[in-house]
Nucleic acid binder design. Structure first.
Lengths: 139, 139
DNA sequence: GTTTTTACTTGATTTATGAAAGGATAGAAT
DNA sequence: ATTCTATCCTTTCATAAATCAAGTAAAAAC
């Protein structure tokens, strides 16, 4: 289904999704047209879900990066889930997890004050453990 | 420094970083050239750090997604940090955190067996708590 | 062994990009 | 008020890339 060339294409686009199909073709030893056809196929298959940009969040004012492990005490998760729905401004990722806690939130905030307010609001629906990111490296 | 148009540009590129500068210009009411100039400036400023692709990891064989909170018992973190360096294949993100634990790893594995082996290796340097992702939604 | 499918290339046309030049606007100095 | 300057934008045009339509070749199906 996916051959070596497809994986190479994914790898190249991961490093720079704005490269031209001609450039991509050169990297994987295909013409630009052939590369474009492969990419279109990867999109159809749902392997490639979209293209995005890596933004330096600090530089756009979001200095605080936090992971919040959520322990819902009530039998129904709905109040909590509804709350999360209202917080799209801060919630970057929402994971349902096994292990300690039921959910984990990856969030961004302008300030600790904003984080504090979020935690106050969150605590009306669930208990939590907070981990603030001091430093980060991605591969 | 960053005006409303810049933020709109970042938003648009976040949703689709492969759109042409002409399209982007249309979205933010500029010519393609003006949009391209702004994007170039955002790159120079380090606000835009790069362009990447959203890949469905399951479809390329990485079925297991886990967060691992790491508690290093030894006074020196170096053995652990050196270990992490060797695991770039699995470690997608490495966070230094405050809160419970010293570090948090976001990892991908083909199988639970592979995860198990990773944990065995990790445990030679540090203790950990495991959270496996059951479901995920990003904004 | 022929047909069909798949993956690629080539060539022509449309479209986007990048560079250079010019125009509008706002703020500061005179 | 006027001029200077800087910034940001648009327009124009040459170049490069993307797209579309055939056409080819090799592998797979029958």
């Amino acid at each position: 289904m996916l051959d070596h060339t497809d994986l190479k294409i994914i790898q190249e686009l991961t490093h720079n999704s704005r490269m031209t199909m001609k450039e991509l073709g050169d990297k994987v030893h295909l013409t630009g047209q052939a590369a474009a056809t492969r990419v279109a196929k990867l999109e159809e298959q749902g392997v490639v879900e979209g293209y995005t940009v890596k933004v330096n969040k600090k530089k756009i004012g979001y200095a605080v990066h936090a992971f919040i492990t959520v322990m819902t005490q009530s039998t129904s998760h709905h109040p909590y889930l509804n709350f999360v729905e209202t917080q799209t401004k801060h919630v970057e990722n929402h994971y349902k997890i096994s292990g300690e806690g039921c959910y984990m939130l990856e969030c961004r905030f302008v300030s600790h004050e904003q984080l504090d307010q979020f935690l106050v609001d969150l605590n009306r629906h669930a208990n939590y453990k907070l981990s603030i990111v001091i430093n980060h490296q991605s591969k």
